[in-house]
């Protein structure tokens, strides 16, 4: 074969490069996994019924929460009211708003006597990690601040973090009543069921109002 019949070197190089890059991308696609939320650390859970705080803050009057700040995990999110859907499950903010948290409006407001409940997505399929992705990293003593519509800021200290199977949700611990202002943050966690596209557990943060 004459030298002129040989394929151009540039074409060979381009084809080789495309082949190698393509195989690399295929290998990456086969091995890359989605980020999963952190689980509560051992020792992060204390008796959530009593809490750690010895001198809780006095209760505030009712006022809608408008913003939640958790400096320890970099959360600064708007809060919107939620209730329950047709099936009776607690609503969460729309999936297209994964960066906002939802306040359970039929319950007490943050700062009032009793348990105020705030829920947020851990992640969504479309957008990845969401507002409460790092909730499992919180440790006892971390501070949570909730800015209310009356401009007051209710500050809570984390008592503990727990993971509970959704089939055994701790209803009384989350929605319970009482004279002390407490806060419950709820999101998803634990093993992820790829077939059902759902997490097995709920992660719950227990916190008590502090002065």
């Amino acid at each position: 074969m004459a030298a002129g019949d040989r394929p151009p070197r540039a074409a060979v190089a381009l084809i080789t490069l495309a082949g190698v890059a393509g195989l690399g991308l295929l290998a990456a696609g086969a091995t890359r996994t989605a980020p999963r939320p952190p689980r509560p650390a051992p020792g992060a859970v204390v008796n959530p019924a009593t809490g750690r705080s010895t001198v809780p803050a006095p209760p505030l009057p009712r006022a809608d929460p408008v913003r939640i700040t958790i400096a320890a995990i970099g959360v600064r999110a708007d809060v919107v009211p939620v209730a329950a859907g047709p099936t009776g499950e607690l609503e969460v903010p729309p999936k297209d708003r994964p960066t906002v948290a939802g306040w359970y409006r039929p319950g007490v407001s943050p700062g009032e006597a009793g348990n105020a409940v705030v829920v947020g997505h851990v992640d969504t399929r479309e957008t990845g990690p969401a507002v409460f992705f790092d909730l499992g990293r919180l440790r006892p003593g971390d501070r949570i601040q909730v800015t209310r519509a009356d401009t007051r800021v209710a500050t809570f200290a984390v008592d503990g973090v727990g993971a509970y199977p959704k089939t055994n949700f701790p209803t009384a611990l989350v929605y319970g009543d009482g004279p002390v202002p407490r806060l419950r943050l709820v999101t998803c966690g634990g093993p992820f069921d790829e077939r059902r596209r759902a997490y097995r557990d709920n992660v719950v943060v227990f916190a008590t109002a502090v002065p």
Binding site: G19, G22, L26, G29
Partner: peptide, 27 residues
């Protein structure tokens, strides 16, 4: 109160679909 647990996660997609498609196209 509401019933049971809270459906607050959909599982982040690893974005593998686009990577695999690009790889397949190049190959």
């Amino acid at each position: 109160t509401p019933i049971g647990g809270v459906p607050a996660g959909g599982g982040a997609d690893a974005g593998n679909g686009g990577v695999v498609a690009a790889g397949g196209t190049l190959v």
